[in-house]
Amino acid sequence: MPQHSFKLNGETVTVEAPDDLRLLWVLRDIIGITGPKYGCGLDVCKACTSHINCKAFNPCSVPVGEFTPTDEITTIEGLADRSTGALHPMQQAWLDLDVAQCGYCQPGQIMAAIAKVRQAKAAGREIGDDDLDEIRNICRCGTYVRIREAIKTAAAKM
């Protein structure tokens, strides 16, 4: 069985798994990281959104064989400050505005939101409604309105 190494939430991990196994199942079923959720396995619902080298991606749609030892993968579990435990401003905004309902989509929403803010900032603008309209993450509880507010609030602190 092939071995795969990458950095996961700051630690180097090595796992044995077939090359084509999607990373989501490596995380959830082999390593036991359950923050990224399954909502489709089709790169559509975005419930599994995590970060690779600071960009948002969907581990349900990437074979584990594609990662290299220098790739840094961050899941929702690795978002808070690793030394102090302080929450990321996006997580804090989610708390302040009490965004979550069932919470199933929210790890993915938070990871996508951070990337979206970074993307806007890199393009030299504040995040606006047009950017928010591009976020594809499903929230079947329909928390979209609070998500928009929370992202705008957090963006000011990022």
């Binding site: 959830r28 036991g32 359950t34 923050g35 990224p36 959720k37 399954y38 899941t75 929702i76 579990e77 978002l79 808070a80 929450l87 997580q91 989610w94 708390l95 009490d98 979550a100 309902q101 919470g103 199933y104 929210q106 790890p107 938070i110």
Partner: peptide
């Protein structure tokens, strides 16, 4: 009042059935 499980949700700690060991 905020949801009592809000922090568990935003840190990925809230467990749904398939997250349980």
């Amino acid at each position: 009042q905020n949801r009592l499980d809000a922090r568990a949700i935003v840190t990925g700690a809230k467990k749904f059935a398939l997250d349980l060991d």
